[in-house]
Write a protein that binds this DNA or RNA. Structure first.
Length: 487
RNA sequence: CGGGCUGUGGCGCAGCUUGGUUAGCGCGCUUGACUGGGGGUCAAGAGGUCGCCGGUUCAAAUCCGGCCAGCCCGACCA
C-alpha cells in the first residue's frame, strides 16, 4: 500500500494535477484524506443533527452488498431475521448491572411524546440485548425451544463525543444477533462460528480485508459479556479497526431476565447466550484499508458498478463501439455503467470514477478504435493495457476475478510489514505507534494496559502465537497480545 | 465537563490589528465558444441580512459586551 506500489512506473503519467480538486495524500494527513474520500466519492454526508449521517446512494449500495454477504452467512449459521422495537423501557436497561454501567453514558432517552411528558421515559436502543431477552424469557420454556437464534438488521443510537462518518456516528446501521443455548459449550461454539464463518469469511473473502481474530481483555470486553471475540484489521495508517464482534454472554442476561428452560429431566435451568454485531463501520474500514491517494478502491464483489465503459469523446464510431461493449459486458453478468457524458471532459470523468473506486474502466477513444482497440484500466493497480475489442470481456473478467484477492494480498503485506514481535513491555511501548505489536500477554497484564493507554495504545485482542483462537479453558497467560492504536 | 480556536455566497478561505464608497479570492455552479487519450482554455453570468442580539460611532464584517453554534485536544465506544 505504498505509493510506489499504487502507481507503477509503467502507467502513462497518471496525474494529480495541480492543487485543485486533488485529494490530500494519506501520508500528509490521513484523517483529512478520509473525509475527502467520503465526500468526493459521494459516500456520505453529515446529517443536520450533530453526529448523524446521511448515507448517499453510492455508499448505501456498498452497504447493501456487505449486508447481503453477511446476511447470507448468518442464515447459513441457522439464525433467522426478526425485528424488535426502537424504543426500550428505561427500566429494562437497568436489569443487568454491567450492561447499565457500560451503556448509561451513551443513552438517548425520550421524555416527551404526543406533546406531554411520558410517565416512564423510553430509551432509544443503543443495542437490543434487553428487549430481545425480555422476549426470550417469554418464548423459551423447554430445551426443545433451544437453541434460539435470532438476528435483526436495524439502526441503533448512541451518544458520541467524537463523531466521524461511518467510524463513529450517533446513529448507525448494523446487524445484531442474539442467541440462547442449552449449555455453555454450545453457546461458545456458536459465538465462534459467527466470528469465523460469518465475520471473518465475509470480511476477508468479500471485502478483501485481512483480519486478526482473538478475544478482548477484560478492559475491552463488551458490557455484560464474559468473553468478547473480535475481528481486527489494520487500516492504511497502521491503526486498528474492530470489524465485527461476537460475545459469549454466559448466563448474565439469562439470570437478569429470568430466561429459563426445563431440561429433559424436568430441571429448570438458565440458558447460555451469545450476541454479535457488525455495522456500517465496515464501510469506513473498506475506505481506509484499500483506499489510495487517488480515492476509493473497491473489491468487485462490493462495487455498485464493476465496470465503467466510457466514451473518450463525442464521436459516432466511439459511441457505437462503447454501447456495443456495454451491452456485451452487461449480458456477461457484470454490473456495467456506460459513461457517454461528452459534455464533461474526459479527464474529469476518469478522475471521478477513480475516486469512486470502480474496479475496471474501459476507455473507448478514436485513436485506439482506429486499430480496433480500447484501453482497459484496473483501478486497484492503475495499470492500463491496450486490448482488441474482441478481448475486452476476457480482460474485464480477469480483473474482476483477481482484484479482490490482490487488494487483500496488498493489505496483508502491508499489515505484516507493520507488525513487530517483541518480548517485553518496554519494547512494546517503543514500537507501538507505527502499527501492531505482538507481545506476550503475561508481560503486559492489567498494569501494562494502563501503561499502554497512556500512549493511546490498547490491546486489540489476545490470540495464540500462531494466530489461532484460545481454546476453552486455555489461560490468557499463554497468549499473545496484539497491541496497536485504534479507531 | 477541563484546555485551545473558529463563525464571511454550495465548499474552502482573505479582509478585522489601524472602522470609510459597489465585501474580495480559489473551487464548485449556469450559459456560450473552442476543446477533448488524466480535473483543458477563453468569455459572460448567478449566488452573501459578514452566526445572533445589543452597544460605541456621522459610519461597523472590522471596535466593545452578551448569547448561540461548530471545530480541535483529553475521559467512552461498533
Amino acid at each position: 500500500m505504498t505509493d510506489s506500489a499504487a502507481t507503477p512506473e509503467s502507467t502513462r503519467t497518471p496525474t494529480r494535477p495541480g492543487t485543485k480538486g486533488a485529494l490530500t495524500t494519506r501520508v500528509e494527513d490521513f484523517p483529512r484524506w478520509y473525509q475527502e474520500v467520503v465526500a468526493r466519492a459521494e459516500l456520505a454526508d453529515n446529517g443536520p443533527v450533530r453526529g448523524t449521517m446521511v448515507i448517499r446512494p453510492w455508499g448505501y449500495e456498498i452497504w447493501e452488498r456487505l449486508q447481503a454477504a453477511i446476511d447470507e452467512r448468518i442464515k447459513a449459521a441457522g439464525a433467522h431475521n426478526a425485528y424488535f422495537p426502537l424504543f426500550i423501557p428505561e427500566a429494562f436497561m437497568r436489569l443487568e448491572a454491567e450492561h447499565v454501567e457500560g451503556f448509561d453514558p451513551e443513552l438517548w432517552v425520550v421524555t416527551h411524546g404526543g406533546g406531554r411528558q411520558l410517565d416512564e421515559p423510553v430509551v432509544v436502543r443503543p443495542t437490543s440485548e434487553t428487549v430481545i431477552n425480555h422476549f426470550f424469557a417469554k418464548w423459551i420454556q423447554s430445551y426443545r425451544d433451544l437453541p434460539m437464534l435470532v438476528n435483526q438488521w436495524c439502526n441503533v443510537v448512541r451518544w458520541e463525543l467524537r463523531p466521524r462518518l461511518f467510524l463513529r456516528t450517533t446513529e448507525f446501521l448494523w446487524q445484531e444477533g442474539h442467541t440462547a443455548h442449552a449449555d455453555e459449550a454450545d453457546a461458545r461454539a456458536y459465538a465462534l462460528r459467527i466470528l469465523t464463518d460469518v465475520y471473518r469469511d465475509a470480511i476477508e473473502q468479500v471485502a478483501g480485508i485481512p483480519v486478526l481474530v482473538g478475544h478482548k481483555t477484560a478492559r475491552e470486553r463488551f458490557a455484560g459479556a464474559v468473553r468478547t471475540w473480535t475481528c481486527e484489521a489494520m487500516m492504511g495508517d497502521g491503526k486498528a479497526l474492530q470489524m465485527g464482534t461476537s460475545h459469549e454472554l454466559g448466563q448474565n442476561f439469562a439470570k437478569a431476565f429470568g430466561i429459563q428452560y426445563s431440561d429433559a429431566t424436568g430441571a429448570l435451568r438458565h440458558v447460555w447466550q451469545t450476541s454479535w454485531g457488525a455495522s456500517t463501520r465496515l464501510i469506513g474500514a473498506l475506505i481506509m484499508a484499500h483506499g489510495d491517494d487517488f480515492g476509493l478502491r473497491l473489491p468487485p464483489a462490493l462495487a455498485p458498478v464493476e465496470v465503467v465503459v466510457l466514451c473518450v469523446r463525442e464521436d459516432e464510431a466511439v459511441c457505437k463501439a462503447a454501447s456495443a461493449l456495454f451491452e456485451e459486458l452487461r449480458r456477461g453478468g457484470r454490473r456495467v455503467h456506460l459513461d457517454a457524458r461528452t459534455d464533461t471532459g474526459f479527464g474529469r470523468r476518469t478522475v471521478d470514477w477513480e475516486l469512486k473506486g470502480v474496479p475496471v474502466r474501459v476507455e473507448v477513444g478514436p485513436r485506439d478504435l482506429a486499430d480496433g482497440n480500447v484501453t482497459v484500466v484496473a483501478r486497484h493497480l492503475r495499470t492500463k493495457e491496450t486490448v482488441p475489442l474482441a478481448g475486452v470481456a476476457d480482460a474485464v473478467e480477469r480483473i474482476c476475478r483477481s482484484a479482490g484477492r490482490e487488494l487483500r494480498d496488498e493489505a496483508l503485506a502491508f499489515r505484516e510489514a507493520r507488525t513487530a514481535t517483541v518480548g517485553s513491555m518496554a519494547e512494546a511501548l517503543e514500537a507501538g505507534t507505527a502499527g501492531f505489536v505482538r507481545v506476550p500477554w503475561n508481560k503486559v497484564g492489567e498494569p501494562g494496559e494502563l501503561q499502554l493507554a497512556a500512549q493511546a495504545l490498547t490491546v486489540r485482542c489476545l490470540q495464540r502465537g500462531d494466530g489461532g483462537l484460545a481454546a476453552a479453558g486455555e489461560p490468557d497467560d499463554a497468549l499473545v497480545a496484539v497491541v496497536g492504536r485504534s479507531y
